[in-house]
Computed example of a mutant assay.
Amino acid sequence: EDSTASDDGEGLDVADDGRPFPQSDVLYLFDADHTIEAYRYFLDRAEADADGDADGDGELDDGNPWHKPDFVQDKLLTLAGAGIVEPLVSTALEQRDRDRLEAALNLLAIYRDIVCDDGILALPIIAARTLQDSDGLRP
């Protein structure tokens, strides 16, 4: 309700249940979607470079910040923190391990879904409970 206090409601993004998304939620969803796609792009480029199929001139400088690893890593850290997702993503990229990358990105997608369904304020609580109950992630 607070997100519409200074607006008549027009032009706001709306969830499936009709509630307006606060702008912080919209930004989180946008950044999460783009971060997931950027990491898939980075792995595709790394694999192509390793196979000799790409230009091989290092980082693509087309002006798109989503093609810059440092920018995307900063986004990942703001979305998911440094504890679980970021180390998994970094290791997966170093080892060119698509399965590990997809598993890490799936965690980010779960966070994204939490924000979409329950709002950004629910994310820390739900994520902490979920991770605490996950034996596979405990180490």
Rank of each mutant, 00 (worst) to 15 (best):
L76R: 00
D61H: 15
D51W: 02
A50C: 02
I114A: 08
E10M: 07
R98W: 13
D33Y: 05
D16K: 05
F30Q: 11
D7P: 01
R100V: 03
P65G: 08
F71V: 03
R138F: 13
Y41N: 04
H67P: 00
P124K: 14
L121Q: 15
D33Q: 09
A122L: 07
G63Q: 04
R19F: 04
S90Y: 08
Y111Q: 13
D2Q: 08
D118F: 15
S3Q: 14
P65N: 05
L27F: 01
G52T: 08
S6T: 12
G83S: 11
I126A: 15
K68S: 02
D53I: 05
Y41G: 04
L131P: 03
G58L: 04
A15P: 00
L29G: 04
L12G: 00
I110S: 08
V115L: 13
A104N: 06
T35C: 01
E47P: 01
E86L: 10
Y111T: 03
A54Y: 03
E102W: 07
G81D: 02
G119Y: 09
D16A: 07
L108I: 10
T130M: 15
D113I: 11
F71T: 02
E47I: 15
R96F: 12
D133Y: 03
L131Y: 13
A80E: 02
D25M: 07
P20G: 10
L12H: 03
T130W: 12
W66A: 07
L43P: 02
E102K: 09
Q23A: 13
F30D: 10
A109S: 14
D17C: 10
H34C: 02
C116G: 12
L77M: 09
I84M: 03
V14W: 05
A15W: 03
D74A: 09
E47N: 09
Y41K: 09
D57P: 05
R112A: 07
D33F: 02
E47S: 10
Y39F: 14
D49Y: 01
P69L: 01
F21D: 06
S134N: 15
F42M: 01
A103Q: 09
S90W: 00
R96Q: 15
D61N: 14
R138H: 15
L43K: 04
E59S: 14
A80L: 01
N106T: 15
I110T: 08
S3P: 07
A5E: 15
Y39L: 04
P22N: 05
G58F: 01
V115Y: 13
L105W: 06
A32L: 03
R45P: 00
R19D: 11
G136M: 10
V89F: 04
D118I: 12
L27V: 08
G11Y: 09
A92I: 06
I126R: 14
A15I: 05
G56I: 01
E94Q: 13
A5C: 07
D25E: 13
P22S: 02
F21M: 06
D33P: 05
L60D: 10
